[in-house]
Nucleic acid binder design. Sequence first.
DNA 1: ATGATAACTTAGCCTAGGCTTAGTTTCGGA
DNA 2: TCCGAAACTAAGCCTAGGCTAAGTTATCAT
Lengths: 151, 151
Amino acid sequence: MQRTMAKRPLPPADHHAARFARQREADRTATAEDYVELIADLLREEGEARAVDLARRMGVSQATVTATVGRLQRDGLVETKPYRGLFLTPSGQEMARTAKARHELVVRFLIAVGLDPETAETDAEGLEHHASEKALAAFARFLAEREDGGR
Amino acid sequence: MQRTMAKRPLPPADHHAARFARQREADRTATAEDYVELIADLLREEGEARAVDLARRMGVSQATVTATVGRLQRDGLVETKPYRGLFLTPSGQEMARTAKARHELVVRFLIAVGLDPETAETDAEGLEHHASEKALAAFARFLAEREDGGR
DNA sequence: ATGATAACTTAGCCTAGGCTTAGTTTCGGA
DNA sequence: TCCGAAACTAAGCCTAGGCTAAGTTATCAT
Ligand SMILES: [Mn+2]
Ligand SMILES: [Mn+2]
Ligand SMILES: [Mn+2]
Ligand SMILES: [Mn+2]
């Protein structure tokens, strides 16, 4: 995949550690982001977001959804009305809005660099959680230039 | 970050679930990939990869390294000689080689689309685990075209 | 040669996020 | 109306990957 194995010396240990720490942090927030994004999507597209639908779409058992939603409630992102679905608190809505915009941006970017739309969607689901603000800005810049380029 | 919130209907539930399943799978393998890549780097650059150095560079306690390395051993990726460092089995070397190439590719790609090198390194540490083969191929294609473009 | 220090391990704890199985509660069709 | 099915909850289990604190053990400098 690459010819020359660059002889780059290792970064200072604390820098190195900081990278991994950021990665672990992103992993910790990923589930919440995916859930609230999906809840928002379901509310918008289907009018309601029931736990059973979340379970189906996340590919996870209902019990897992119950537990995860419990944590989201604890963290002030979600409210539940049993048999009537899930709802987002203001801060849940905020997170969903951000997550959705980021998700869309990553998908459009991946397509712009030559990935097919289906794979772009799949990959974006994971990649989105690890793109920093700076990376997202770079992606947006890239897309803006692409659109301009046609002119 | 985006003006129009595309009214894309939700994908079929099973497709949707498959995306999240792939994401979870990637998360499960990420730690092993990072460890073997780092062990390989340390062996190459420092001549040895001791647990204590791994701990420092991963930003994690020594006890965590012991536990994680135990899993890597169980999975046939690593061998240990106490006070003499860690070594990769053939399949560990193979994983390290792949992970390293992928890491380098992602970094170069991020820089090519306008990210500064330090952020590229940080983001790559997380992004690399979620880029499919197709995405990596697209990144490589993009880089090849960039290089060509100057001609 | 030996002992202080660094490296490593062990034990015990925690949370997130999975699972199955077994209840309970609500809804809606006959 | 009422009862079976669907939705939800609860209980109990598991693994990964973190932590701290308390041992061991090997190395190396004196
Ligand atoms: Mn996602
Ligand atoms: Mn998403
Ligand atoms: Mn990584
Ligand atoms: Mn890496």
